[in-house]
Design a protein around this nucleic acid. Sequence first.
RNA 1: GGCGACGUACCCAAGUGGUAAGGGAGAGGUCUGCAAAACCUUUAUUCAGCGGUUCGAAUCCGCUCGUCGCCUCCA
Length: 509
Amino acid sequence: MESKIAELQDKLERIERGGEARKADSLRIYNTLTGKKEPFVPITPGRVGMYVCGITVYDNCHIGHARSAIVFDVMRRYLAHRGYKVTYVRNFTDVDDKIINRANKEGVAWDEIARRYTEAFYDDMNRLGVRAADVEPKATDYIDEMIEIVAGLIEKGHAYAVGGDVYFATRTFEGYGKLSKRDLDELMSGARVEVNEIKRDPLDFALWKSSKPGEPAWESPWGPGRPGWHIECSAMSRKHLGDSFDIHGGGADLIFPHHENEIAQSEAFTGKPFVRYWVHNGFITVDKEKMSKSLGNFFTIKEILDKFDPEAVRFFILSTHYRSPIEFSDEQLREAEVSLDRYYTTSGRIVEFLEAAPAGEKKSPGEQAIDDLLSEFNERFSAAMDDDFNTAQATGLIFELVREANRYLDAKPVGSAAMERVKRARDLVNSAGRVMGLFKRTPHEWNLAILASRRIGLDEAAICAKIEERRAARERKDWGAADAVRNELAAAGVLLEDKKDRTGWKVKV
RNA sequence: GGCGACGUACCCAAGUGGUAAGGGAGAGGUCUGCAAAACCUUUAUUCAGCGGUUCGAAUCCGCUCGUCGCCUCCA
């Protein structure tokens, strides 16, 4: 009964506030730590500190890495779009067992491997339109900061040195398990705890590892060694964002143990809450199974970009909510290309309409519908993005506007009011596109890109020559010859579109 | 075994208390020399199943079935 009353009071309060309070703190983010969507309130008003776990540079990235990079890129863009001053930090793990193993296998230096795959990462990200972070620290540049934390943890009794190693004493940190919702005894009873005689407790994890001869090594109070995996993120985030910051992100597979361990290290060391909002993206699946290195069911970004346009990859990823699993397949990528093609086709119609600038003034029956949508577009877009970055809903909205714009153009409107209306539609979609990192090209650039990526073997000049050939045939009403040209191009994958005064072309997607 | 997520049309996918966005595919139509594109109509009285709460549930609660994830490196 009491809870019912409280619920009703809440409801009333919300109604009373109406649209008022919506604006300021309406952004809600799902927090893994609490398991709920929460209003986003930054530690420092107007500023956001955001740290996302980057990659270990030991191999080419797969599409799962792309998902993480893209969804956090969009979060960062949206936060900035909303007026926050964002400091976005994304690290590189450039020293690690996997890197060392790969270097040994190939007989090259470990830092050579790190350099190679860091470059490959940038190459992939540039193609996918993922912007660089504000700070991109490499683990090996922060050894001193890590040593400081490790030494501090030993001093506070949260860690101990054995041989040349240092371990975090998990049971000394009370909150251990709060992120992944686990308790220590359950973890203990789990079958797969690491067997290691040196550790006092099987759940303890390495902060610092002694280096074997030939391995990368740094001087430390515990002898030459290298950092454990988790400590780097504690050190680098603290250095750039402070002891406490707003958002920490990464793939859902990092929740345990990586992020759990980060919390333990950081909070045990600083005595302060580490992160306000923990944000994790869902996996990409293949045949319903998580894509992963160990299962071998992964596709590298390079392989995919060999066959599909990068913007289609981006659209594909953003057309599903970031926490949901997303099934990867060629068919899905194709559909994403088709959707984008629909956008670019409409975009082309808009360009032509504005260039033609039809004179006169005429009322058109579709005005009300498009005006309604135009006036509510920004609010609906923000509402979608405010709801835990719902890019799927946002893309739906964009295509509503695409349809409405097409419908309006079909009515053949004329005059300056019509021009303004169409420009408005274009500008609204473009600004939403900027937040999502989409729609950056002209329709012509899109067509050329698809033409190239399909390896059709025709260039634009060749297509235009064919169009001219067909135009001549059509002029003399030689429909057979005209259709032959069109069929020939269609067989190659190029479609012709006859318009009022010319014939356009596009690639069949 | 422990913890967690998900199950919406032929396919993909939004929707977390007020009566099912969007994209693709299919069917019919308008436009066109014919097409293509675009637009219109159409395709879930229903949201895995069964109960419950509520004036009202895809949305909240319980159970059942199914799928997947984490518990080990992993985006």
